[in-house]
Write a protein that binds this DNA or RNA. Structure first.
Length: 211
DNA sequence: TTCCCGTTCT
DNA sequence: AGAACAGGAA
């Protein structure tokens, strides 16, 4: 946890902001963000939007809608996202948990972030990345989401740290607001999709980065 | 490590 | 036809 590591993180954040500027990802309701967070696991976002609109048309794109719907209906509607049998069960498990523990999404808003995170992690199908996405994008908490892209970029930048440590580093460097976390995370994903995914390592300013 | 699985791009 | 995709469980 040296100061140089923190400054490296800051330099990455600043460099990506210079490259992409203001970039806001998804203004959705809390409930749709929660559903989308499950559906997007190992799946392209474009396919998630298809599934979300199908759920909306069926009138079940909500916690209570998912909770009440037959498993087969959910499976059919979310089919475009892949892993539809597993994800349908994860969605109902999450909906049931929210209703049972908090009486609905509104009941979550007063719960401290760490408590809420632990609660979400107890749901089958909600791992750390999904839980943090829900907290940041769905509930407006100042939580930074570490995903495979972020981890890879940091590794290429010479920052030798695991996901746990990276999360703490980003949150200590960034302003303590959900918008700051959202925007920076979006930058990392955007960069990785543009360069890492297309293997443009020769054009990557982050590789062998030492700031 | 392997499985879950449809869609899109190569 | 093959790989890759906003992961997580067993």
């Amino acid at each position: 946890m040296s100061a140089s590591v923190s400054s490296s993180i800051s330099a990455l954040i600043d460099g990506l902001f210079e490259q992409y500027g203001p970039l806001i990802w998804w203004k959705g309701s809390t409930e749709e963000v929660m559903i989308g967070a499950i559906l997007t696991q190992q799946t392209r976002w474009e396919n998630v939007e298809v599934a979300l609109s199908r759920l909306r048309q069926a009138g079940i794109c909500s916690i209570r809608g998912i909770f009440a719907a037959p498993m087969e209906e959910i499976e059919a509607l979310i089919r475009p996202t892949g892993f539809f049998r597993v994800k349908a069960r994860r969605l109902q498990g999450l909906a049931a948990h929210v209703i049972r523990e908090f009486g609905g999404v509104e009941g979550m808003r007063t719960v401290p972030t760490e408590d809420l995170r632990e609660s979400l992690l107890s749901v089958k199908g909600v791992g750390e990345e999904t839980a943090d996405s829900i907290l940041c994008y769905g509930l407006g908490r100042a939580v930074f989401v570490i995903d495979a892209y972020t981890e890879r970029i940091c590794w290429c930048a010479g920052i030798d740290a695991g996901r746990r440590e990276l999360k703490g580093l980003f949150e200590s460097v960034l302003p303590e607001t959900a918008d700051a976390c959202r925007q920076s995370h979006a930058h990392f994903v955007e960069y990785a999709k543009g360069y890492c995914g297309k293997k443009r390592c020769d054009e990557c300013w982050i590789r062998n980065f030492d700031g």
